[in-house]
Amino acid sequence: MTALVSESRFPDPDRAYRALIDAHRGLSDQDSAALNSSLVLILANHIGDQGVLEEAIALAKQSLERSSPDRS
């Protein structure tokens, strides 16, 4: 089973990040959320591995807890 790769993989991570920002520029929150939903589905399918997907979800949830310290 492949494990989720959490080390950096893009030769130029800044450009990859920028591509995501560009994609959302000018979109309403609602359209942004819709775009992200499509992206998640496309990328999840590209990964094509239930275990990796679940690890990614767990990692994202962990970061959600950290980024919202006022959440009880």
Binding site: A33, A34, S37, V40, L41
Partner: peptide, 8 residues
């Protein structure tokens, strides 16, 4: 959000 995923 569930609806967004569905519609996506």
């Amino acid at each position: 959000q569930e609806l967004r995923f569905r519609n996506a």
